[in-house]
Amino acid sequence: MTLQNIFLLLFAPCVGGFLALLVVRLPSGRRVVFGRSQCDSCEMQLAVWDMVPLVSSLVLRGCCRSCGARIGLLASGVELLALGIAVWAVLVLPPDGWLPWIGAALGWLLLTLALIDARHFLLPDMLTLPLIPAGLLVTWWGDQSTAGSGLLLHHLAGALVGFGGLSGIGWIYKRLRGREGLGLGDAKLMAAVGAWVGWAGLGSVLLWAALPALVGPAAVLC
Rank of each mutant, 00 (worst) to 15 (best):
F18R: 05
I102R: 11
L182S: 05
G103F: 04
A89G: 06
G162T: 08
G77L: 10
V15P: 01
C64I: 09
C67W: 07
L113R: 09
L74A: 07
G198W: 05
Q4T: 13
W199T: 05
G216L: 13
Q144W: 06
Q38C: 10
A20P: 02
A157C: 14
G181Y: 06
A159I: 10
G158L: 12
V90G: 12
V59N: 00
G185Y: 08
L91R: 15
G158P: 00
P13A: 07
L73F: 08
C14L: 14
G165V: 06
A157G: 00
L211A: 15
A12Y: 08
W108L: 08
A192V: 12
L151T: 03
C222H: 07
A200W: 05
L9W: 09
V48G: 04
T139V: 15
A192M: 11
V87E: 04
G68Y: 11
V92Q: 13
G198T: 11
W49Q: 05
F121R: 14
W199Y: 15
V205T: 08
L19I: 15
A75E: 06
W101N: 01
D117Q: 06
V15C: 14
L54M: 05
L152C: 01
L93V: 03
L81H: 00
V48S: 10
L46K: 04
L26Y: 05
A191I: 13
L91I: 12
K174Q: 14
V48W: 12
A219G: 06
R30Y: 00
G183P: 02
A114L: 15
D50G: 04
F163V: 14
W98Y: 02
A82G: 13
G185N: 04
V205F: 15
L58R: 02
G148H: 09
W49H: 10
L123A: 05
R65M: 05
W140R: 11
L74K: 06
I71W: 03
V15G: 03
G142H: 13
A159M: 04
G162H: 06
H154Y: 00
T128W: 09
F121A: 13
V59P: 00
G148W: 11
V33R: 02
A118S: 12
A218L: 15
V52H: 01
L81I: 12
R119P: 02
S167R: 09
C64D: 07
M190L: 15
G16T: 10
L153K: 01
G17H: 08
L110M: 14
L184W: 03
F163A: 10
I85P: 01
R30T: 01
L131M: 15
A69R: 11
G62C: 03
V197D: 03
A47S: 11
G203P: 08
L22W: 03
W196E: 02
I85T: 04
L129D: 09
D143C: 06
E180R: 10
L8M: 12
L176Q: 09
L211Q: 04
L80H: 00
L83I: 08
I116V: 14
R175L: 12
L184N: 03
L182E: 04
L60Q: 07
P95C: 08
V90H: 09
A209D: 08
L131D: 03
E180M: 06
R70C: 01
I71V: 09
L127C: 11
